[in-house]
Amino acid sequence: MPVANIQVSETLLVLYALRRADDALILGHRLSEWCGHAPMLEEDMALSNIALDLIGQARELYTYAAKAEGKDNDEDKLAYLRDVRQYRNLLLVEQPNGDFAQTLVRQFFYSAFADLYWRAMMTSRDTTLAAIAAKSEKESAYHLRHASEWIIRLGDGTDESHARAQAAIDHLWAFTGEMFAVDEGERALIHAGIAIDPATLRGRWLTTLSDVVGEAALVLPQNDWMQQGGRAGRHSEHLGHLLSELQSMQRTFPGQTW
């Protein structure tokens, strides 16, 4: 008997934590798909390391979301027993790995944002979120350095790597706008000093991107049409497949201890 989805009382704080937890888990899961299949052993190691950091962040955020909700949910119920419409992650992080360029461009776009975001969140009035931010910021800084170095290598490597990196940038660009969008609920948390306004980070994020992309002799798209929906549970078709794999054990063997 498959297990029914859990219900989550998405108060502003619970929803806030879930959104960031889902970002970290889904991206960590995607990166973990590379383990054993990367272009070189050093990247099997590095991508796994980044995945581990992100899964660690997800666990802390889910645990906090469960605590803030105050019911009997926990990190595993939140991760394994919500369906695609209940997931709140950015569309960017659920995009398939594609080739190595696509994985690294996705990571670059996200880490350039996460690094700024978590650094700013260290001043949150919510001491748990501030503590999670302090840890995540250190990790994101390393993730950004790793991704930036690869963007430069690929952009300034061979004709093929340049073309693949540019194609990945062009493909993923439309998923970046969502990182800076804020809904009304989150606006209230921003006013309360619990969250920060991501829109204030966009200028610096673009500067980071321009510097790296410029050094790599790549270009950022002019197109400013942006896909939205992940934060409200309107995902790409890719997420359902990811979840069916991620959740298969908990759905097949309900209520067991692992």
Binding site: L25, H29, S32, E33, C35, G36, L41, D44, M45, S48, N49, A51, L52, I55, G56, A58, R59, Y62, E75, D76, A79, Y80, E245, L246, S248, M249, Q250, F253, Q256, W258
Partner: peptide, 22 residues
């Protein structure tokens, strides 16, 4: 790795396989 039954098991398995690579 992608099907580990809990987040703790997922992290532990990923770290383990990463060790093997090391």
């Amino acid at each position: 790795i992608t099907r580990a039954p809990t987040l703790r098991r997922k992290a532990a398995l990923l770290a383990k396989v990463q060790d093997e690579c090391g």
